[in-house]
Computed example of a mutant assay.
Amino acid sequence: MIRACDVADLPEGEAVRILAHVPIAVFNAEGAYYAVDDTCTHQDASLADGWLEGCLVECPLHAASFDLRTGEPTCLPAKRPVRTYPVLVTDGVIYVDTNVREEVA
């Protein structure tokens, strides 16, 4: 488990980037926390710098969009999903379990 940040430091609609084996973006989307690989699968861009609408994040480079719950792309130009990670909130701290990675196709 990697400590991402305090709950108070990640307001709704915002994201934070953490470093693990790869960069990971942690989002507060509609009061739920999600973690995905930070790099867009279409081209190297930080999803933490993207635009969040509900549970979808739009890449800041070419507007590819991903569902934070599944990692699946919802529109072109991205065709491959981003990896997702379990998130745990304990005592007001957000943790990402980088040991349990959902494999992407």
Score class of each variant (00 low, 15 high):
97 D>V: 07
43 Q>K: 15
103 E>G: 14
36 V>T: 02
44 D>P: 14
67 D>S: 13
37 D>W: 03
48 A>N: 07
16 V>L: 04
3 R>W: 00
84 T>I: 12
48 A>P: 06
75 C>G: 14
5 C>Q: 01
65 S>L: 13
66 F>C: 09
33 Y>W: 11
59 C>E: 04
47 L>Y: 08
33 Y>Q: 05
79 K>V: 15
104 V>M: 11
20 A>W: 02
5 C>E: 01
66 F>G: 10
59 C>I: 08
83 R>N: 08
24 I>E: 02
88 L>M: 14
59 C>P: 04
56 L>N: 12
69 R>M: 06
58 E>T: 07
78 A>D: 08
46 S>T: 13
97 D>S: 05
21 H>F: 06
9 D>P: 04
41 T>E: 05
76 L>A: 15
9 D>N: 04
24 I>T: 00
103 E>T: 15
72 E>C: 14
70 T>N: 03
43 Q>S: 13
84 T>V: 10
28 N>K: 03
57 V>G: 00
83 R>P: 04
80 R>F: 15
2 I>H: 02
81 P>C: 10
14 E>I: 00
74 T>E: 12
93 V>H: 02
60 P>E: 11
1 M>I: 11
25 A>Q: 03
87 V>E: 00
81 P>G: 13
9 D>S: 10
55 C>Q: 10
72 E>K: 15
65 S>P: 10
68 L>N: 01
27 F>R: 04
54 G>E: 07
90 T>S: 13
18 I>P: 00
5 C>L: 01
35 A>Q: 02
58 E>V: 01
82 V>A: 13
6 D>R: 06
34 Y>E: 02
90 T>N: 13
33 Y>L: 08
86 P>G: 09
2 I>V: 10
6 D>E: 13
11 P>W: 09
89 V>S: 00
53 E>I: 06
83 R>V: 09
66 F>Y: 15
101 R>M: 13
89 V>E: 11
36 V>Q: 05
79 K>C: 11
62 H>N: 10
96 V>D: 01
13 G>N: 08
75 C>P: 09
92 G>S: 12
30 E>A: 12
68 L>Y: 03
43 Q>D: 10
93 V>W: 06
9 D>A: 06
26 V>E: 06
97 D>Q: 08
24 I>H: 01
67 D>Q: 11
21 H>K: 12
39 T>E: 12
70 T>E: 00
25 A>L: 00
